Computed example of a mutant assay.
Amino acid sequence: MIGTKPSGTVPATRVHAEGSVFAHRTLPEETPVAMVYDGTTHAVMMASPADIEDFAAGFSLTEGIVTRIDQIASSETIAHDRGIEARIWLSGPRAKALTARRRTLAGPVGCGLCGIDSLEQATRPLPALHRQGPVLTADEIASATDQLCDWQPLHDLTHGVHAAGFLLPGRGVILAREDVGRHNALDKLVGALARQGLDAGRGAVVLTSRVSVEMVQKCAMAACTILIAASAPTLHALRLAEEAGITVAGFTRGGSFDIFSHPQRLKNETRHVA
């Protein structure tokens, strides 16, 4: 049976220069999760089997299946021998829109990007967020990924998962979610924010990963205007961020960071950030 707990302990042999020793390792679980809308499977992702309701809500929002959390009429999580189903029922208008979207896809073969034709998905129009968003101090951005470390219990156990956190100006990181997939962690965070009635546009998303195209797209769909990452953005991700009006800070660690786009959301201070 596929695991439904986020981690498990297995035996291992630790090999080093002096020889080997028996050990135990706690490793992250990876489980197929099917997003099932109104009885039809839309996508299947490999994910950590935790916070599935947040995952379903966030995926629905960041993929444009719904535009507001109240357009999800109801949902439930069902565990099977081979994985987990997130069953989601949509309100009338959104259900019709998804049915029409499926109908246009009958026949063509894509590469499996969430059930949408791959080229269309990769270039989908994003909301324009140029005039929105909070302003952060350099210290708030520089310390963001360090703060996120305090919200990663699964990583502390396994050293094998990503995290996405939400930073509010003046308060720091107030919420985070973890997953084996960086996209899944972000979807779970977006879902958790929506389900708790928190406006993603009031703060910044903080990532343990690099910034890829999908991460910019998901932040734009969530109306979050600041993306802070421990690693690098891709060039294509930066082009999308510039167009959408999203501030991207990368290489955020050790008290420093690089601002790549829309620096107007960095508070004008005497501190110089190279």
Rank of each mutant, 00 (worst) to 15 (best):
V216P: 00
T208N: 04
E243P: 00
S20N: 08
G191T: 08
C149F: 08
F166R: 04
G250Y: 07
G160C: 03
A142P: 10
V216K: 00
I72A: 01
R182I: 02
T123I: 12
H155Q: 06
E53D: 15
D179N: 13
H262D: 05
L227R: 04
L186H: 04
A220I: 04
P233D: 07
D70N: 09
T41C: 13
A222E: 07
I141C: 10
A97Q: 15
L198R: 15
A97C: 07
V211W: 03
A176Y: 05
S7Q: 10
R124Q: 14
Q132E: 12
V273F: 11
T26G: 03
F59T: 14
R177A: 11
D150Y: 09
A138N: 09
A12M: 11
R271I: 14
D187H: 12
P125C: 09
L189H: 06
A176D: 03
L129G: 05
A164R: 05
A57R: 01
L266Q: 06
G107D: 02
E63I: 00
G115E: 02
P263E: 09
A47V: 11
D117W: 07
K96S: 13
T41E: 15
A34V: 08
A23M: 06
P6Y: 07
W151A: 05
L113M: 11
A229E: 07
E29L: 10
D146K: 09
L119A: 13
T67C: 06
D156A: 14
G255T: 09
V216E: 02
A274P: 12
T77M: 11
E76H: 09
Q196N: 15
A106E: 15
R82T: 09
E140P: 10
D146N: 11
F260G: 10
A73M: 01
G181D: 05
A50H: 13
G64W: 08
A232V: 14
L90C: 01
F260W: 12
T225K: 02
A138K: 14
A100P: 03
Q264I: 01
G39M: 01
G58I: 01
P153S: 08
I72D: 02
H262V: 04
M46F: 03
H42N: 12
A230L: 11
R210M: 13
D199V: 09
L193A: 09
H130P: 01
T62E: 04
R177D: 11
R87I: 03
Y37S: 00
